[in-house]
Amino acid sequence: MSESPVLKRSLAARLSDGRAWPWLLLVPALLLVAAVVLYPTLTGMDISFRQMRLNRPALGTGYIGFTHYLAMLNDTVFWVALQNTAVWVVVTVVLELLLGLMVALALDVELPGFRTIAVIVLLPWFLPVVVAGNIWALMLDARLGVINAALVNLGILSDFKAWFADPAWALPAAILVEAWHGFPFFALLLLAGLKGVPTELYEAAAVDGASLWHRIRHIQIPALRMIIVASVVLRAISLMNSPELLLILTGGGPGYSTQVLSLYAFQKAYREFNFGYAGALSVVMFLLLMVGSWVYVRTSNALKD
């Protein structure tokens, strides 16, 4: 008994000196990813070609070809959701990028107290969506919302407004909440990027007597270009993929005014148990994402030259 740990250790130690060692280290992670990402994703693609209604088992789960995909073409909700998804992703990313860039440029100046401010600014990103969503639901509430009260006091609004009940305002209000939640992501990455700009560049600009705007436009933003491209792709992907905030704030309503693809797919599965159609919707989403990111990276590379 006393020898077995020694034996074990020497086996691991011997393995660690073999050529396969770097690969052996990867095995647990690869197995996990294969089991919980790749296999489910492939199963999801398979499901999208099947009839699969969990609440109607009598229909069976046989293959039905492209039926779900063809049904999408005549599904008006799908087209509305597609349009809303585009607005939701593009407007939110642009807004978050601008907010993040502004605060990163300011915090890069490095003044007393800015370390603490940087931590405070990051806070929203670490808050759970459930809390973030309900905080804003409280502040925008039609009866007791503090934002409504402030706007009325300032004379901007004549009366308290039910932001999430108005089809014209529900999506913009949700975008505001998401921007609050997500702009620290850009602030974090852009600030890290700004710290890496060589000081010689600034010194040269100072000698030339460059203005603040000139410095931002011609030194700082070009230096951040790669980070901006990468962070925009990452953020757009996560916005497109996660319906959580809209699920909490509006559930897609009023009407379909805040319905997006990810939320629509989730509800098809969660509420209607129509897993086949939900699978097809998410496959379409996946394809749009892949094509979208590819086109975006290509054009931003082309513009660089």
């Binding site: 992907i237 993929n241 990810s262 599965a269 897993f275």
Partner: peptide, 30 residues
């Protein structure tokens, strides 16, 4: 440093792009 190392890194990055909804539906069944 080994053949496929960069692909491995790219793979772990790409995995993050898979739609959560596309994963969670089959995960429920599995």
């Amino acid at each position: 440093r080994y053949a496929g190392r960069n692909h491995m890194l790219l793979f772990f990055l790409l995995v993050r792009m898979f739609p959560l909804v596309l994963m969670v539906i089959p995960l429920f069944i599995i």
